[in-house]
Design a protein around this nucleic acid. Structure first.
Length: 583
DNA sequence: AACTATACTTAGGAAGAAAATT
DNA sequence: AATTTTCTTCCTAAGTATAGTT
């Protein structure tokens, strides 16, 4: 693994060198220019979900109060519902309707004619059975748990790795998704539908011709085995809810993902060099006589200033109703010529990716404001705000402004530049390590807020906050005691020349003060983090070299910033960046 | 220009493991 | 040793983007 990292970093440094010199390496040509992603790929194929185990006969299902033995097919789908019984999902009309419709498809003719009303179905014995099972799992002995752990490890070693071009690489998701009920996010029209079991004949294998091909389970066949080295996936299948393709790909620690990640940040850095030009350009375009150009320019302004997502069109009725910049509708913004003492305020209120609410009040330039008024004229609330624009048009324009530029690059660029600038601003040279880490988290938080990365407040948040406060209070008492002791020790020292005790007590006071500060910092950090998720930006938007450089500059161990997985993902950056790295 | 198919990144929550506390 | 709390990993949905087709 060490040599893996070493090789990767050497390759990347070589690439960087070529990049700086404007030359193209043979290696780069191979990897990027002709779209070849690998030369050799060997793997064992996916791990399938365990087969369905019928319920013991004592666990009964009742319809309209009467016991009913279900066919295995119908029973399996019933258990999916039973397992979710205490989840809010199962109370929702759409969920129930979708579930019931799909469940009926799995029933025998007889079952179908009897079971006509979901309300008359009693799943409680099943639900209790599964609860008991999970209790039993928790109560297993150490030996039993160890056995399971070992079996998992064996599976990981056999199926969790592949060979790609001389390296043994970790696979991200080598287990096939088990069947169950689809749980969409937000108001999803397909929630509750049956996600069917994936069989070998649904699976497409991708590997190199000259590799040992993965074998399907005895008595089965793959749908197809192909040898496409222009793509990175190892296994794919078509999922039945949206009809989209799912893939098995490599772990973020792999060469192929690391390189791509590095490339992403290099593109963002190229944007840094020309962003002023682009900003001047779109400001000019606000005045264009062509409406489509004005719309493009205002949308780009939002994407740049507010880090909004591009906003592809979505098929109506297939997914939850969410939007991004280009798909904003009139109903999603409100214009205030004046609000709270500010001029030209735009209020955004819409559901974005994962149905996370975006709410923001932003003062904008007069020209933007006037344009928005124009775009909204004579439109209904559910009309598109930018009716002459879509992501494809916008990206084509961006491509002309800079090679490789797309809407999402602005998010990466603004996130990373914000981190760098916030770190500069917030880090105090004479702070201790915990205080510096608090500063880091605050810089990270500024980015998370910009990108609107939210989380549900943890269920136990209030309580854990209280516990921390109790600790702080106790520490304060302890400090007061220690200080009193110090006072008397000082007095004693004068009278009895007892310097030793005095020094000792002084040290204790200092130690307690430090502990108290640490706790207080922790409380601040946690409070500020209540509804904000730092992980997403850390993992996907922040050039890791900024963090590596910061940690080197201030002598903060990198382990305080990145956990093991993150260090594996960012191995390239940890190897590459010095303390003076500039994004 | 619209539509479809494909491949890949980004996302929040659940589950599981580890650490801290009682 | 048991329980609670916190951190990490897993899971898979939901985006972005582009190429090919009509």
């Amino acid at each position: 693994m060490v040599s893996c990292t070493r090789t990767l970093s050497v390759q990347l440094l070589h690439l960087l060198h070529c990049y700086l010199n404007g030359s193209t390496s043979r290696w780069e040509e191979e990897r990027y220019t002709d779209g070849v992603k690998w030369k050799f790929l060997e793997h064992k194929g996916p791990v399938f979900a365990p087969p369905y185990e019928p319920l013991p006969s004592r666990v009964k299902f009742y319809y309209d109060g009467k016991h009913m033995k279900l066919s295995p097919e119908a029973e399996e789908v019933a258990t999916f519902f039973a397992k979710m019984l205490d989840h809010e999902y199962t109370t929702k009309d759409i969920f129930r309707k979708n579930f019931f419709k799909d469940w009926r498809k799995e029933m025998t003719a007889e079952e179908k004619s009897t079971i006509t009303d979901l309300k008359k179905c009693n799943f409680t014995e099943m639900a209790e059975y599964f609860k008991a099972q999970s209790e039993a799992r928790k109560a297993m002995t150490k030996e039993e748990k160890l056995k399971i752990k070992e079996e998992n490890e064996r599976l990981l070693q056999e199926y969790g790795f592949c060979i790609m071009d001389n390296h043994r690489e970790r696979i991200a998701n080598f287990r096939i998704e088990p069947p169950g009920l689809f749980r969409g996010r937000g108001d999803h029209p397909k929630m509750g539908m049956l996600k069917r079991r994936i069989r070998p004949q649904d699976i497409i294998i991708n590997c190199s011709k000259d590799s040992k091909h993965p074998q399907p389970p005895p008595g089965t066949k793959w749908k197809e085995v192909r040898h496409d080295n222009k793509v990175t996936w190892l296994v794919s299948w078509t999922e039945n809810i949206q009809g989209s393709i799912k893939y098995i790909m490599l772990n973020p620690s792999s060469r192929i993902k690391g390189e791509k990640d590095w490339q992403k940040y290099e593109t963002a850095r190229r944007l840094k060099k020309c962003v002023d030009r682009i900003r001047n350009q779109y400001r000019e375009d606000w005045k264009s006589k062509e409406m489509r150009i004005r719309q493009r320019a205002v949308a780009l302004y939002f994407i740049d200033k507010l880090a909004l997502r591009a906003g592809n069109e979505k098929e109506e009725g297939e997914t939850a109703d969410t939007v991004g910049c280009c798909s904003l509708r009139v109903e999603h913004i409100k214009l205030y010529p004046e609000k709270d003492g500010q001029e030209y305020v735009v209020e955004f209120d819409f559901l974005g990716k994962d149905s996370i609410r975006y709410y923001n009040q932003v003062p904008v330039e007069k020209r933007v404001f006037k344009n928005l008024q124009l775009f909204m004229e004579n439109k209904e609330p559910d009309d598109d705000l930018f009716d002459r624009l879509n992501t494809s048009v916008l990206n084509k324009h961006l491509q002309e402004l800079m090679d490789g530029l797309t809407a999402k690059v602005f998010r990466t660029y603004n996130a990373s530049i914000t981190l760098q600038q916030q770190l500069k601003e917030l880090t105090n040279a004479d702070d201790n390590i915990p205080a510096k880490i608090l500063s880091y988290n605050r810089a990270n938080r500024a980015v998370a807020i910009l990108c609107n990365h939210q989380r549900a407040p943890p269920k136990t948040f209030e309580k854990s906050m209280q516990n921390l406060q109790t600790k702080i209070d106790a520490k304060k008492d302890q400090l007061a005691d220690a200080k009193r002791e110090l006072k008397s020790a000082k007095a004693d020292a004068k009278v009895r020349k007892d310097e030793k005790t005095k020094k000792c007590v002084k040290k204790a006071v200092q130690r307690i003060e430090e502990q108290l500060m640490k706790l207080e910092v922790q409380a601040t950090d946690r409070e500020e983090n209540k509804q904000i998720a730092l992980g997403t930006s850390k993992l996907n938007y922040l050039d890791p070299r900024i963090s590596v450089a910061w940690s080197k500059k201030w002598g903060i161990p990198i382990e305080k910033i990145y956990n093991k997985t993150q260090r594996e993902k960012f191995a390239w950056a940890i190897d590459m960046a010095e303390d003076d790295y500039e994004f």
